[in-house]
């Protein structure tokens, strides 16, 4: 994406956490001892109105809602972390908020290596497996030999 965007890295990890499979994230997180923190916003389940565009390119319209859970925490050093995850898993939202905060501190390399990288790899793998199955159903047209010589 845009290399000049100072928020690009944070945006990327928050987006990945939002879409992550809850069980996989919980598994990877399991090895970590959560740092000292206070909860700024207890996990809250809500709805987000998803919008589309008429004709894919025109005026916006409301397509329907999706469930989202959010939470915010503050580490003892004052770093604030926000978690937004799809669905209704409160533990996942808290974990996402903690990871968001830790990624802004010195432990970032370890969190990146032990959680975000394997999480991203697993999600990429799922996505590419689907793409590979779709590709196998691509039609190869061929023209029959014509009779008119």
């Amino acid at each position: 994406m845009d290399g000049s965007d100072p928020n690009a890295a944070r945006k990327a990890w928050m987006s990945m956490l939002a879409k992550s499979p809850a069980t996989l994230l919980a598994q990877l997180w399991g090895a970590f001892v959560p740092p000292q923190h206070s909860v700024l916003r207890a996990p809250e389940i809500g709805g987000v109105m998803v919008r589309g565009r008429a004709g894919a390119v025109g005026a916006a319209f409301n397509l329907g809602e999706m469930t989202v859970t959010r939470a915010s925490i503050k580490l003892s050093d004052g770093t604030v972390g926000h978690g937004y995850v799809q669905g209704r898993d409160k533990a996942q939202a808290l974990t996402a908020a903690l990871i968001d905060a830790m990624m802004q501190t010195d432990v970032a390399p370890r969190v990146q290596a032990e959680i975000l990288t394997p999480l991203g790899n697993a999600m990429d793998q799922m996505k590419s497996t689907r793409a590979a199955k779709a590709a196998a159903t691509k039609v190869d047209f061929f023209t029959m030999v014509r009779g008119e010589d």
Partner: peptide, 11 residues
């Protein structure tokens, strides 16, 4: 019953 957290950008 869900609080509306916001609206997305158009997909």
């Amino acid at each position: 019953t869900l609080p509306r957290l916001g609206a997305s950008l158009p997909v």
